[in-house]
Design a protein around this nucleic acid. Structure first.
Lengths: 204, 204, 204, 204
DNA sequence: AATGAATGAGTTTTCATTCAT
DNA sequence: CATGAATGAAAACTCATTCAT
């Protein structure tokens, strides 16, 4: 959520000092647009109109374009904001979690959040962007790499599993969660299979 | 391919004896439209225009709407046709394959075909249709159920795995194959993890 | 005016024969759109909206885009239609006029029509198209070349005058006619100066 | 340049003695906006946005509208400024030039400057303003009248040529210089014809 | 039955103008 | 006074859908 508070990058200066709060409302608008857009795109896919987003955000639709010059830019911004949030969360898990279980916690958490993440994956699909290529994804990827390596060092994930398939499995299960009648039971059972496949043989 | 030849079920009876010749044309048109639409939607996503489909199918724009009253109906019809094809294929595997390996063969085959299936899943996502709700999916689902049951009877899949998570895993890996740089290696390693998770513990 | 009657170039066949008059109204619409657009652009410049043109032509604005995929295409079509008309007129003058005076008649006629030609010149200016490069202008240019050569052979225009300056003078006087309070007197006196400059010295 | 320094005539008196410093800023801003706008409009036509002008002038967007209540007003102001400049230049020629050739020099100079003047003429055309009606044109017109009269008195221009056609010819050749491939040769030959038409018969 | 012309609601984007800070 | 954020009218263009031929 805090990542929505960033002002436009052209205004790097801190708001403190002489109290130049000239664009407090602009910042607020930007944040509201991002928030609204994420929700709307999540609900209706990237085909949702900017007009609807503007309306639901309570601003004129010109204001959306003032903050994000194209629809594509808005999509990218959402992507980055979400990636930032996830990377932050993941990094916290890297630093404070139990290495043996943190990767599995993370995996589960991602799937739980999948309604939100649908946006990301959809946008990635629509934009034709390769997950591995998108810049803001990089931090997230690195955090995942660490979680995986830690789990392997702790002996809870097989040594021969590499990052690409780990990400593929995460993405896959998250996506699957969108296309079936997906209750907590089903989620648990699906993850159980995958987690079992990830564990070393001798550990069972 | 044969599944394209079904006329719309709403036109069950011919209006007269002499009407047959025209009916053949219409049937051919319907088949060509479906075929073309599947290819076009696969290539361009569901945002592709009906006009383009009509053009590539070599029919007038209006003809598409004569056969499918809305674009949505066309999407549904493609879905049904594809589900029919897959069900047929799967059924053949049920009847002629080795029970111990048929389920895994089927799973692999689905992922290999995922480029084609992308269409379906994308369309499902866009249309907000739940896979489990679509009627023609039922036959496919039944065939999968049999494959799974056979494998469990043959001891190559854990007894506690149920159909929903099996389908979720299939869908998930298929979807994952569309994002990330997905080569044969990655596909093999990802399936290895999932298959491993599906096998009974004592079999390893 | 007859140049408006051309059907879309994709339908080369003659309307006769079996009387397949399927698109009589399409042809009519195309002609009306062109006619209306020429008038509107002449009155308001090329900044006039396609919506206004559609409205004044009595068609939906989508129809304008069906016939001319972009506004630019519409401008070009007007240009070509006008060039066609002028070339035809000029050619007639080449064939039936008095070589000694035809060039001057043509020059005068162009200036008289300048209200109409404003469209052309404006469009040329707006589109950044070089007069000499536009294809449909070529026929017109050739006719002008002949008029000039004939006049020079008849001794009413100096031998050292070349086509480029002749065209420059025509364009210039036509344009000037748009920017001043331009009555018949002023037109006559301005042309008198230019015509005098064009005549050989010994002829006066 | 000096003509840019005039404040808007509607603000005749200063509100107080201490207000002078601010006024100087405002004057400078006004001048910079006019200068920038002339350049931008010259380069991009009157479709250029006020935002771009504000940016290039280094002022806020709102400042442009503080000085010129509408875009139209800005166009008018540019026109006046340019007319002032040209009138000044022309007046200098009246006072210091050779009466026999000054008019022709002036004519040539106008055509040479036509790239700059394109702005004006274009704006006039776009705005539908008649040259003869614009007030600041009057001074320029008077100067031209004198140049013409002097040339006629010196015997280098025919007695029967009046100011309107002289201006029409100037405007026409300037405009023509914007269309067609216009090199120094073509300019020279075109002016040669016009100048020849302007000279008395016995002088050749 | 097939065609494709017509339609107009909807989409993205731009920009002059207003107004709060 | 200066600023730039907000606004919404308007523009070009698309496309599913309808309908006359």
């Amino acid at each position: 959520m805090t990542s929505y508070d960033h002002p436009t990058p052209t205004h790097g200066g801190p708001p403190g000092g002489t109290g130049r709060a000239l664009r407090a409302d602009a910042r607020r608008n930007r944040a509201r647009i991002l928030q609204t857009a994420e929700a709307v795109f999540a609900a209706k896919g990237s085909a949702a109109s900017t007009e609807e987003i503007a309306h639901k955000a309570g601003v004129g639709h010109g204001t959306v374009f003032r903050h994000f010059p194209t629809k594509e830019a808005l999509l990218q911004a959402i992507l980055e904001a979400l990636a930032d949030r996830l990377a932050e969360e993941t990094r916290a898990l890297v630093e404070t979690g139990d290495p043996a279980t943190a990767f599995f916690q993370f995996f589960t958490r991602m799937v739980e959040q999948s309604a939100e993440k649908k946006t990301v994956v959809d946008l990635l699909a629509d934009a034709g962007i390769d997950v591995t290529a998108a810049k803001p994804i990089h931090a997230l990827r690195q955090a995942i790499e660490e979680l995986l390596a830690n789990a392997q060092r702790a002996g809870t994930v097989r040594e021969d599993v590499r990052v690409p398939e780990a990400m593929a499995l995460i993405i896959g299960v998250c996506q699957a969660s969108l296309h079936t009648s997906w209750g907590p039971d089903l989620q648990a059972r699906t993850l159980a299979v995958v987690f079992d496949g990830l564990r070393p043989r001798h550990s069972r």
